[in-house]
Amino acid sequence: MQLTQQGKKQKRLRGDLIAACFLLPFTVLYTIFTIYPVFQGAYMSFFKWNLMGKQAFIGVDNYVNMVEDKYFWQALWNTTKFVLYSTPAIMLSSLVLALLANRASPLKRLYRTVFFLPNLLSVAVISYITIYMCQPYDMGFLSNLMHSLGAPTEFEIFWLKDKHLAWVTVVVATLWWTQGYNMMLYISALQDIPDQLYEAASIDGATPRQQLFKITLPMLSKTTALILMLQIIASYKVFQQIWLITAGGPGRATRPLIQYIYEQGFQKQKLGYACAMSFVLFFILIILTLIQRKIGRKGEEE
């Protein structure tokens, strides 16, 4: 009896050791490249710090300045705006595409590939394509298309220079780029819905419309909650495509928080201040992640 228990214990210990061996390389790298910089960043946020190194300890001055800095609030609001615009748009479009690509059709595979393909492109490529599409005076695709469809030559839409249209451009570009991933998540969830439910519904005379609203959408609710949270978190980290497409313009109208952090840190040499702002963003993301985990757990319990 005792022997077997000891054996069990030994076995478990061996298992743990093997697991540790597998986990170690990742843990070491993760510590060096993620955990350590988090603490270093927290440390730096209490200093005046430029690219040459530490300058002076200034306590919480960076945080006080942040609260008083209207450009910080403007940038945070711009990021929030992006979240508010892009999240519903991306969720809706990826759901529609998933429903489309999940229909029994010989083109099913083609649909999935085509919708997913932009996801493989790098941010530089999608940004360049967007800028090309939006050029006025027949130098871009949209302007050309508009004029060949009969719009008067002097009529132009400035997709990148109007502060409202610039948001439309950035959101649509992001949508086209990232929706394929969410579509894949939806497709896998759609395939988990048992066919019997639809069969039973058909027998009972439910229309396809009723099936969509009474079966498909409720069955997808868990996935929807997951995508919602992932999307909000991802959108709060927006930087690259805005930087490449509008560079935060016109004026400062589309400048997101990360761009402001980057500018303060690397263009204005205020690395301590940049760290303090990064911490605020980090805090926002942690709260969102906790909410997401809570929702995820609730889903599992059900």
Binding site: G249, P250, G251, A253, Q267
Partner: peptide, 20 residues
């Protein structure tokens, strides 16, 4: 000079774009 130049470029750009 560089950060001031960046600020001026952004604001003057917003002016000619008709934003302010």
């Amino acid at each position: 000079s560089y950060p001031i130049r960046d600020a001026m470029i952004a604001q003057i750009g917003a002016f000619f774009s008709g934003e302010q």
